[in-house]
Amino acid sequence: MKHFFLKSFLLFVFIFSGSSHAQDISVETATDTLFFDDFSQSSLDREKWNVVGTDFWVNNEQQIYVDSTATVFTVKGDDAQGAESALMLKAHYSPDYITYRGNDFDFISGRINTRDKVMFTYGTASARMKLPAGSGFWPAFWALGGGDWPDTGEIDIMEYVGETDWIGVALHGPEYSGETPLVNKYFFPEGEDVTDWHVYSVDWTKDGIYFKVDGRLIYRVTKPMVEHYGEWAFDNPKYLILNLALGGAYPYKTNGVEKPYNGLPESTVQLIKEGKAEVLIDWVLIRN
């Protein structure tokens, strides 16, 4: 059973030394815990999570999301790759799976969210994750407001496009969406990369937003910084999203690949066919 203590969460968030690694940090919950899931059940808890289906497509991504145990499922033991249990989002090569909005999709993958199940305003949202190597993989851990985008804001807690030495964080809102100026890259220390277990988190307050990896502060955005570009869109409830996208706008901007798929090179297509397009999530936690 995973460590689940009703006491201070400070060990996880703040105690980190050069000899420690993310996989050595226990998750500890406190009385202000709003949400916690360690994916220890035999399947995804539908009381906590929604699963996105084939009626959703954005950003020229090369996959279509499906609500299936092939793309969203829990694992234990060796399949959890160092965790006791975990959620797996997995992409598959599935030629001509569906035509949607005039596009033929050859890949399926998984996306989940807590919309209308768990919404929160301010607090700390964290997830312990293990990501796959491969140019054009586009997994993310993020939060959206419940209204129109970008008016109700977006917090990108972790975004990865296939370069294993870094992840990105960002804010989007009115007048600073899309190519937002409020963005930063975090480059891992030597000997670490995204294929290791890491804790990605954000501390969200009424005056600022603080992004962290393994307890290290990697980017700080204050309310005045945001209001230099547009309206502060971070006083409203938000929900969490976890997804594994393939190719599309952001990977293409990074790798410039046009064929065989936009933002998705043949080498990564082969990884998908070999069953290596996997994102593992050990746990997700929200504290007020």
Rank of each mutant, 00 (worst) to 15 (best):
T205Q: 06
P224A: 12
V284W: 02
F105I: 01
F12P: 11
S267N: 00
V169P: 11
W149K: 01
N243I: 10
A91R: 09
A22R: 06
T195R: 03
L34Q: 10
V58Q: 13
I286E: 01
D32N: 10
H172C: 00
N255E: 13
G275S: 01
S26W: 07
I155K: 03
L34W: 06
F211C: 08
A277W: 04
H3E: 14
W232L: 03
R101Q: 11
G153W: 03
F35E: 09
D214Q: 10
F188V: 04
N103T: 11
E231F: 00
G136K: 02
V66G: 09
G162D: 03
W283R: 03
A127Q: 08
W138N: 10
F12L: 15
K253P: 07
V66E: 11
F188W: 05
L242G: 03
G256M: 14
F188I: 01
W138E: 03
T74P: 13
T29Y: 10
G162A: 08
T195W: 01
K238P: 01
M119F: 12
G102R: 00
L44D: 11
F137S: 05
R46T: 14
F39I: 08
D151E: 13
G275H: 05
E84D: 15
P150T: 06
E227P: 02
V161Q: 06
H21Q: 05
K7V: 07
V279A: 00
F36D: 05
R128D: 03
L242R: 01
G178R: 03
L242F: 03
A277C: 04
N60K: 13
E28T: 08
G247N: 12
G153K: 04
R115E: 14
H21F: 13
Q81G: 00
S109K: 00
Q270C: 04
P132E: 09
L87C: 15
S43W: 10
S40P: 09
Y93F: 15
L10I: 15
T180M: 08
P139D: 11
N184R: 04
A133N: 11
E274C: 01
T69H: 14
R115K: 15
G136I: 07
L144Q: 02
V13K: 15
K273F: 00
S267V: 12
E190H: 07
A277R: 10
I112C: 08
Y93T: 10
Q62F: 11
F211E: 07
Y160A: 02
S43K: 15
I108A: 04
A30T: 13
L264P: 00
Y122R: 05
F234T: 10
G136N: 05
